[in-house]
């Protein structure tokens, strides 16, 4: 089974989740737990870094959908950054760029929060 893990970095009130490996129906709960943890700590400004993510399935995309509403209700946002072309295509196909802000780099995403 493919591996997946996340690392969490905090920069002021912004939380940066770095994804690594394969995000699919089996590994999605790992990311769900991470989001739950952030939300229960009232941290709603979230940047997700896709730099090291090799693959994402539709169930993986579902994780972002499951939390976006709650996060935005609390004046926060989930911003996505550093996607490979392959991962971006999957997001793009489903129309995610219409719902999420996607940035080339993590820094840009963080900067957007501070504006």
């Amino acid at each position: 089974m493919a591996e997946f893990n996340t690392t969490l970095k905090e920069q002021g009130d912004i939380s940066i989740i770095k994804l690594k490996g394969y995000l699919d129906a089996h590994t999605a709960p790992v990311l769900e737990n991470k989001f739950n943890e952030l939300i229960s700590n009232n941290r709603y400004k979230i940047v997700v870094d896709f730099q090291d993510l090799a693959y994402i399935s539709s169930a993986g995309l579902g994780v972002f959908m499951a939390y976006i509403e709650k996060v935005r209700e609390n004046q926060g946002d989930i911003k996505l950054a550093s996607m490979s072309d392959k991962v971006f295509n999957i997001f793009d196909l489903l129309g995610f760029p219409l719902l999420y802000e996607i940035f080339k780099t993590e820094e840009e995403a963080i900067k957007k929060f501070s504006e």
Binding site: V63, M65, L94
Partner: peptide, 8 residues
């Protein structure tokens, strides 16, 4: 539909 079960 739950958000995470979207349908293409």
């Amino acid at each position: 539909l739950h958000r995470k079960n979207f349908v293409s």
